Amino acid sequence: MSGIKKRQWVKPQTPPNSDINVTPLVDVVLVLLIIFMVITPLLEKDIEVKVPDTEVQEQNTPPPDDQLVVSLDEQGNLKINTEAMPSQEEYVNRLKKMLAAKAKDERVVFFMANDKTNYGKLIVALDGAKAAGARVLGMATEDLPQGAVVPGAEGGAAPAPEAPPAPAPAP
């Protein structure tokens, strides 16, 4: 039996190490830290937004003669400039007549709704203006100044209803 080799087992000199090797972990964390330090300043770039220029106007400047302002009160009653509208049909018919007198690209109607106005009634008024032929619809965000004249109503210009001043913006 001289041709058979016996297996020899080599016993390791040190027992197996069950501790975690933290060197690769530290290397990965440092690489991630460097990546984030390089990328973070690049992420803080501003997005360019083109904002229209603002115009400073005097508080008591009346709106232009050809401007149409539709206002809605808390109950959803409609007024074109200062003329009260008894019904939705009358509102659409009156607005149709007023817009027919204007050029197609000048058919602009502004809406000024009370904060407590039902949203659905505002949408009905907006739809009525579109049905009457308005090309551009705008929302007025501030009340008309006290004593301002709103032209365009039947019978000439009439003073606008008194409204509380708009609150000042918070700093």
Score class of each variant (00 low, 15 high):
150 V>M: 06
145 P>Y: 04
29 V>C: 11
146 Q>F: 04
78 L>P: 01
95 L>M: 13
105 D>Y: 06
47 I>W: 11
88 Q>W: 09
102 K>Q: 11
122 L>V: 09
79 K>E: 05
152 G>C: 01
141 T>C: 00
145 P>W: 01
143 D>I: 00
151 P>Y: 09
94 R>K: 15
64 P>S: 12
137 L>C: 08
53 D>W: 04
98 M>T: 07
126 L>W: 13
83 E>T: 08
76 G>V: 02
55 E>Y: 14
47 I>N: 13
60 N>W: 07
78 L>D: 03
58 E>P: 01
78 L>K: 09
42 L>T: 09
34 I>V: 12
78 L>Y: 08
93 N>G: 07
116 K>H: 14
86 P>C: 02
66 D>W: 06
92 V>L: 05
83 E>Y: 08
89 E>D: 14
137 L>D: 10
85 M>S: 06
90 E>M: 04
122 L>Y: 11
44 E>K: 12
147 G>T: 13
138 G>D: 04
132 A>V: 12
96 K>M: 14
81 N>F: 02
112 M>P: 00
146 Q>M: 06
33 L>V: 04
104 K>P: 12
71 S>P: 00
140 A>P: 01
28 V>M: 12
128 G>M: 05
148 A>P: 01
40 T>S: 15
52 P>R: 10
124 V>I: 15
42 L>E: 11
143 D>F: 07
82 T>K: 02
91 Y>S: 06
139 M>W: 03
115 D>V: 11
98 M>S: 14
109 V>D: 07
63 P>N: 12
142 E>A: 09
148 A>C: 03
60 N>D: 15
106 E>D: 15
129 A>N: 05
88 Q>M: 14
155 G>T: 11
124 V>P: 00
120 G>K: 14
133 G>K: 10
41 P>F: 02
48 E>R: 06
38 V>S: 07
135 R>A: 15
136 V>D: 11
73 D>I: 01
26 V>R: 14
35 I>C: 14
77 N>G: 01
88 Q>N: 13
90 E>L: 00
63 P>D: 07
105 D>P: 03
101 A>Q: 13
70 V>W: 01
56 V>G: 04
97 K>S: 14
106 E>L: 03
92 V>A: 06
133 G>H: 08
130 K>N: 13
92 V>K: 03
110 F>Y: 15
118 N>V: 09
83 E>N: 07
58 E>G: 09
82 T>L: 02
139 M>L: 08
50 K>T: 13
95 L>W: 08
49 V>D: 04
50 K>S: 08
141 T>S: 08
144 L>Q: 09
64 P>Y: 11
56 V>L: 13
41 P>N: 06
88 Q>H: 11
132 A>W: 08
120 G>D: 15
147 G>A: 10
105 D>K: 12
28 V>H: 05
153 A>G: 10
77 N>Y: 03
90 E>K: 12
100 A>G: 04
51 V>F: 03
155 G>R: 05
26 V>Y: 14
70 V>L: 03
60 N>L: 00
113 A>F: 09
111 F>G: 02
140 A>S: 02
115 D>T: 13
57 Q>E: 15
142 E>G: 01
78 L>G: 02
104 K>C: 05
113 A>E: 07
84 A>R: 05
30 L>I: 09
150 V>S: 02
93 N>I: 10
67 Q>I: 04
124 V>N: 06
